[in-house]
């Protein structure tokens, strides 16, 4: 490990005066006898783009599931903007500011692209059931605003024209992008992306990279992404954490991590394969 203080964000100087958006302290989970994640410490600054990498089965997705409380941590603490999330469930964690995408895409497949985003905007709307059923003026007003907002969010990926299509009928890459839009709709302060470039060709990946940066800059949010595509990770991540067998083996900026002998060993190891 590259001897960094655990409580300071890895890179962005501009966030120095604020509490980090996320701090994990000694986070861990056991599945029966298997320790999937252990002693996971990580701090992410307010507008940092951070990467979580490691070989298959290292426990990366499990970290996301811990952060979003899909799994309950066995050990450790998660602080979101300084607030302990110990007593929160998945829904409350989302309201507190974490939104995510899934490695194995989980869209609302039978619904339209627009509806997928509108569901992300659910808590941004406030009208109650009775006003909806009686179609009171503020129902129309909020729906109109939400619709406009949804189209605006879709326009990040130039997807407005797909609004009325069924989400399940989109090509794979577009489905991944829609998941990002839906997550953004919930107005997060931290966006978790689980292998966003999986199944994309190099040009799509390049575009995605630009868009992730654009999202960070326009929404002023932090992004933590899991990715196997090293060009993307090294290209946009300001801080990187490397996981192997559930433990952090290295931490630092892209250059530090790339040249860390432990990382090279874990990745290239005996076989000398390119990172999977």
């Amino acid at each position: 490990m590259s001897g960094r203080d655990l409580r300071t964000p890895i890179i962005p100087e501009r966030d120095k005066d604020k509490t980090p958006v996320l701090e994990c302290v000694g986070l861990g989970i056991d599945f029966g006898g298997l320790t999937a994640v252990d002693d996971f410490n990580m701090t992410i600054g307010r507008t940092e783009i951070a990467g979580l990498i490691g070989p298959n089965g290292a426990g990366k997705t499990t970290v996301f599931n811990l952060l979003t409380k899909v799994y309950k941590p066995t050990r450790g603490e998660i602080l979101l903007e300084g607030k302990n999330t110990a007593n929160m469930n998945t829904i409350q964690v989302n309201k507190a500011g974490i939104a995510r995408t899934f490695q194995n895409i989980r869209l609302f497949k039978e619904l339209t692209v627009l509806d997928n985003v509108l569901i992300g905007l659910h808590n941004e709307m406030k009208y109650d059931l009775l006003s909806a059923v009686t179609r009171l003026p503020w129902y129309w007003k909020e729906e109109k605003i939400a619709r406009r907002r949804a189209l605006e969010l879709l326009s990040i990926f130039c997807m407005e024209d797909l609004a009325e299509q069924k989400a399940g009928s989109l090509p794979y890459g577009a489905q991944r992008r829609l998941e990002i839009v839906r997550a953004l709709a919930t107005n997060p302060s931290l966006l978790l992306l689980d292998e966003p470039a999986a199944g994309m060709n190099p040009s799509e990946t390049g575009e995605l990279m630009e868009n992730i940066r654009k999202i960070r800059d326009t929404f002023k949010i932090a992004v933590l992404l899991i990715e196997h595509d090293m060009s993307l990770v090294m290209g946009i991540c300001e801080g990187i954490v490397v996981l192997n067998y559930g433990k952090i083996i290295a931490k630092g900026d892209p250059n530090e991590v790339r040249n860390d002998p432990v990382v090279i060993e874990a990745y290239l190891g005996k076989k000398g394969d390119i990172p999977c």
């Binding site: 979003t68 899934f102 989980r106 039978e110 619904l111 905007l121 659910h122 909806a132 919930t186």
Partner: peptide, 23 residues
Amino acid sequence: KSRHGRAILSIRENEIAAESCGI
């Protein structure tokens, strides 16, 4: 056709995703 109805549909479609959208 309201946010409440869409929330109901999202549960049918994918409960974990619905929860992670704050439903």
